[in-house]
Design a protein around this nucleic acid. Structure first.
Lengths: 234, 234
DNA sequence: AAAGTAAATTTAGTATACAAACTGTATTCA
DNA sequence: TGAATACAGTTTGTATACTAAATTTACTTT
């Protein structure tokens, strides 16, 4: 193992498009690339040191997930997030969340519980650190760990898709906390875990529901706050 | 308009990959291309009279929808359908179906109703004709017309995705009818329409649920029938 | 000066060319 | 005879080259 792989980061064949896809996906979901921003194929090709082909494949896959929108014969752009659909989004998320969490309470194995606990630990750490980006990621991982325990890949995939799609909105949502993340978030998760551990399906579903309703309420309140109401204009 | 466009079917630029995607998707969903069957890029390129590039783009998009599976550096194949997950599939479908149909009953406009009626007409025609393939298509269009009336694009997309993913399984399911499609199928749809028209959300949800449960029951019965039980082996 | 049209530039879509990885066969050695 | 390695053939992933569409710019015309 004396071969220095510092310079060459293992550019294995077939990995190019994958790599670009993952990086771009991360950058889009974390809002480093802002919605509506145009995407330049040749620019990306240069940046990643590859040709347009793998870049194109990555973009096609991102488009399939709705993360970028390609206008025919014109530039592709980072998909704008239409915040006016937020209530509908939460409705959908709530439904899938209730379903997966309920099933998880019934079907979870001890291994599932261990997984969920681990995710919760990491989530709590992110909250404590006040690291919003990490926290969103851990939050998603936490709920997906539960969804995986529900033993229904179809629900799991739909739920995962929604969480992904909403990650950018959640990024906005957590701005409402002004970067001081309250420990209540962790406590709620703890309650959900307890319900799943004791296999109380009704409770798990109810907590999941309250969880999403709280997100909805808080976000709408946040959106409703007028930041200019204190300014006299007359 | 004297220009003969018989030979050249309007090969507009930018349409190539799209065209191939749609055709292949249709062929996969209708089971003309059997699950597990390998897909040859150059073969497809020759068949459609294009290069590998648009074929590749189409395949990437099909892969994103789970219709083909690409093994890295090896051939891509038509995704196998794992029938053992059928109960889970129906569970997921049932949930989304209930949700969309309930919301549709509450939020439907008169225009939605007209749409739904139209789809039902075409569905009934396919049943009468005993055209299984057309019927599956119309059935999907019917339920999507309802889902569109639910005014929730997130639920709509998840539901649509499930319907797509399950179309091949439904193809198997309808084999249980031995090509003599019973008019009961049409009647059930009529009941759902009536519930949505009268905006009876509870009823719409219940009927949607019964609809999927019936599919599940019948399919499992069908799968359980032993076609070799009449053969003596000892 | 405003508007319309034509040329030029940019960029997306497609075609082709090349290279790496996998498959299978054959030959060699134990 | 069987296993292992090497070689050939096929195929995927990537690079490059080309074409057409769309936007921009400049020029002409009223």
């Amino acid at each position: 193992m004396s071969k220095s792989n510092i310079v060459t980061p293992k550019r294995t064949r077939g990995d190019g498009a994958n790599r670009i896809f993952n990086i771009l996906r991360e950058e889009i979901l974390s809002m480093q690339l802002s919605p509506g921003h145009p995407v330049d194929e040749v620019g990306l090709a240069e940046r990643f040191g590859v040709s347009r082909s793998p870049v194109r494949e990555a973009l096609v896959r991102l488009a399939a997930q709705g993360l970028v929108s390609t206008l025919p014969n014109k530039s592709t752009i980072i998909s704008p997030l239409n915040i006016e659909e937020f209530p509908q989004y939460i409705d959908a998320l709530d439904l899938l969340q209730r379903a997966t969490h309920r099933l998880a309470a019934i079907l979870r194995t001890d291994e599932d519980l261990a997984n969920i606990d681990l995710c919760q630990q990491q989530f709590a750490q992110a909250v404590e650190d006040g690291d919003v980006v990490a926290m969103i990621e851990r939050n998603q991982a936490f709920h997906m760990a539960i969804a995986n325990a529900s033993r229904n890949s179809y629900l799991g995939k739909s739920y995962s898709r929604l969480l992904d799609e909403g990650r950018r909105i959640l990024r906005l949502y957590f701005r409402s906390y002004n970067d001081t993340l309250p420990p209540e978030l962790v406590v709620e998760h703890d309650h959900i875990i307890a319900a799943i551990r004791s296999q109380d399906a009704d409770l798990a579903e109810r907590l999941a529901h309250e969880h999403s309703i709280e997100v909805k309420t808080r976000f709408l309140e946040y959106m409703a706050t007028s930041h200019t109401s204190g300014i006299k204009v007359s």
